[in-house]
Design a binder for these strands. Sequence first.
DNA 1: AAATTGATTAAACAGTTGTTTAAAACAGAT
DNA 2: ATCTGTTTTAAACAACTGTTTAATCAATTT
Lengths: 217, 217
Amino acid sequence: MFFIYICKKKSNIMRYKTDQATEERIKDAAGTLFTLKGYSSTTMRDIAAQAEVNLALVNYYFRSKENIFKIIMREKIQTFFNSIFPYLFDEQTSLQEKFTSVVEKYINTISQDPNLPLFVFGEIQKNPEEISSLFPMLASHNDILRESSFFKQLHKINPHLNPFHFILNFLGITIFPFIASPLLVNFGMESSENMKTIMEERKKLIPQWMNQMLLIE
Amino acid sequence: MFFIYICKKKSNIMRYKTDQATEERIKDAAGTLFTLKGYSSTTMRDIAAQAEVNLALVNYYFRSKENIFKIIMREKIQTFFNSIFPYLFDEQTSLQEKFTSVVEKYINTISQDPNLPLFVFGEIQKNPEEISSLFPMLASHNDILRESSFFKQLHKINPHLNPFHFILNFLGITIFPFIASPLLVNFGMESSENMKTIMEERKKLIPQWMNQMLLIE
DNA sequence: AAATTGATTAAACAGTTGTTTAAAACAGAT
DNA sequence: ATCTGTTTTAAACAACTGTTTAATCAATTT
């Protein structure tokens, strides 16, 4: 009986044309606006307008603003970390290979959503405890990063220096350009077209720079 | 007559006890809240409460929310750029000296207001054209950075590579740690106390890393 | 054809927002 | 003491916020 009810419900979901988009359109709209303007600057009416649906539908599909934000936040953070985590923990690859593959992957991922870093770090700052709840495995006492292959390899190559330094360097020279790009355009760098070629060049350069930096001390 | 009026007014401003603080307290409160939570998440009532003044006084002294934000934004951006610009344009100093003094200055400045970078870059992203109006000398066609001593020195040492790369690297490894610090705490780095010692170490390390990076190609 | 069910709509809701108002409190000058 | 100009206050405002409601629409099932 219960199973039948489930089936019926499922088939009901399918049977209406329902554009099939509606829910997805709302999520896309919300994602775009949240990453662009942040949580508070984005209103439910903004989202509805951007998705070209009635205001009430946003609540109909996602219950509340906080809820739709959490869903999107979770996805964004997931893509942000998933695009590099597997590489960092791979015990089979050398430090070299990690640099090149992570840089390649990261620049590709963020290029498709350039506002992602600023959004992620901004929201983490505004709500530091939330990320712990979204990623319980990252809880501070677990210090998962410290046990990664990446971390150990860094430590082995340069035992005198805290590996966090190199992680900061690596993320800094990789991610920061995206964060600073609107500023650099004002500083004489032309168009986002140019930014793209710069980031392509950096794919090859960053691993080399990282190697050079590892030589210190 | 007019002059007398001015004097009278001026003396009137002085003669009341007026706490002398009130206006400053409001500005401080607004600055704290804006950098912490951003423009939209900060309400006029928040500011009044934080400054411990009546709500209407915020409008009395600063006319509007947008206005008080502009004033604070202008000051923040000014401290953000003023703390390094003079060094970059100094024709007397070597590249070495520039690295060390800018890193020292920058880390000191930002340490006193760790949320500054995220705030500045976040607001620039949300309102890219405003920074041009706040800093007309930075208009893209002027490309002031390109004519800096820093830029020329970078170009001289490594003519094959766009100096923007090194500027991105330099700012990245210097500023990014502040942006990422709330995240790193979640990743096993302990307390802001630890973050401080890390940044102290970086004062000496960053110039060395920069030198190493300049060797590529 | 009638009933069912999910999708969509316009309208309203209570609470919050930035801002204004008009009166009061205050400190010094007359 | 009265007057003058500044600062502070409580209350109100209109607009906007997230959310809910009840009605309507449209497609499928009975």
